[in-house]
């Protein structure tokens, strides 16, 4: 909608700018088709890869495993070769992608590589019963590609695969539905993974090793830790105070770092997760002595207080940069 401003908005006060500037601005501006074309390209890649997948699945009897494997391998190798040829030399800083297709072809290469390893295991059980190995190899390739070719999408893919390797689902829409949070092993894994990702974020920032990856690491890490911690808190509810202390300690750490970096995004999610924990513990405590009004009062007053606090905070941190 940005391009679609009504005519009266385009007029700036003549006192502030020169006539020529005004004419240039209110005259014909270029019309960008950037996002439209990108969405078309993305849809095309999605349809193509899914369609190929279905076609192979339906005709596996006539095609044969070798042919399918060979095709996937060629596709993957070709994509990686193209990326290798096209990409700018490796650097620990941010590298711009050389052309608009680069990102998609790299994505295609990575996805087909995952399929290749999976197919190898499915058809020939190459890795035997070492299922971990079958997921660990794509994992390494994904992380390597994310760093070597500087691709945030592949990095997100690598992190989700890392979590899957450990047995957790972290894709945004399924993080709450697909995980069995009643097992403490899973909760512990989640918290460990969260901390590990945060350490990675810290390293990439401090050592300046792809510093722009830090946000993705920290985002995944914080959410995974908070959700695991709250899951332990809600489901077991054996040691509410202990878990609440763990939650609060982590929240305090997140708060301090976010405050230092003036990241309102992390301040907000920390505040909301911690508030959820706090309300739960208060409501449960009053419920044990069969009281409900004090806890309702508490929620109302604390919510209003937090609103007030957020307003003060947002006057201090005005921008909406995330890190």
């Amino acid at each position: 909608m940005n391009q679609n401003t009504p005519a009266h908005q385009e007029e700036l006060p003549p006192s502030a700018i020169t006539e020529a500037q005004m004419k240039a601005f209110s005259g014909q501006r270029l019309f960008s088709l950037h996002w439209e074309i990108k969405v078309l390209l993305y849809l095309g890649v999605l349809l193509l890869s899914t369609g190929l997948g279905i076609l192979v699945y339906e005709n596996i009897d006539t095609i044969g495993h070798q042919a399918v494997l060979a095709f996937i391998a060629i596709l993957s190798a070709g994509s990686f070769f193209y990326c290798y040829k096209q990409s700018a030399p490796f650097s620990w800083n941010k590298v711009e992608s050389p052309n608009p297709f680069f990102d998609y072809i790299l994505l295609l290469g990575c996805l087909t590589f995952i399929s290749f390893i999976g197919y190898l295991q499915f058809a020939y059980t190459v890795f035997g019963t070492k299922y971990g190995l079958a997921t660990a190899i794509p994992l390494v390739v994904l992380f390597f590609s994310a760093y070597y070719f500087d691709h945030l999408g592949v990095l997100s893919l690598a992190i989700t695969n890392l979590a899957a390797w450990l047995g957790i689902t972290v894709t945004p829409m399924r993080i709450l539905s697909d995980n069995d949070f009643s097992s403490y092993r899973l909760i512990a894994t989640g918290m460990g993974l969260g901390i590990f990702l945060l350490v990675l974020a810290l390293i990439s920032q401090k050592k300046n090793l792809k510093a722009h990856f830090a946000f993705t690491y920290r985002n995944f890490g914080a959410h995974i830790f908070f959700i695991s911690c709250l899951a332990a808190f809600f489901i077991g509810y054996n040691l509410p105070l202990t878990w609440f202390l763990v939650l609060s300690a982590f929240a305090a750490y997140m708060w301090i770092t976010a405050y230092k970096e003036k990241s309102f995004y992390f301040l907000l999610i920390t505040l909301l997760y911690e508030y959820l924990g706090l309300c739960t513990i208060v409501i449960r405590a009053f419920a044990e002595i069969n009281e409900i009004y004090p806890s309702i009062m508490f929620v109302i007053v604390s919510a209003i207080f937090l609103c007030y606090y957020l307003i003060q905070l947002s006057k201090k941190i005005k921008h909406d940069r995330v890190q």
Partner: peptide
């Protein structure tokens, strides 16, 4: 990661 990376555990 949501649409392509539907990695099951």
């Amino acid at each position: 990661s949501q649409t392509f990376g539907g990695t099951h555990q």
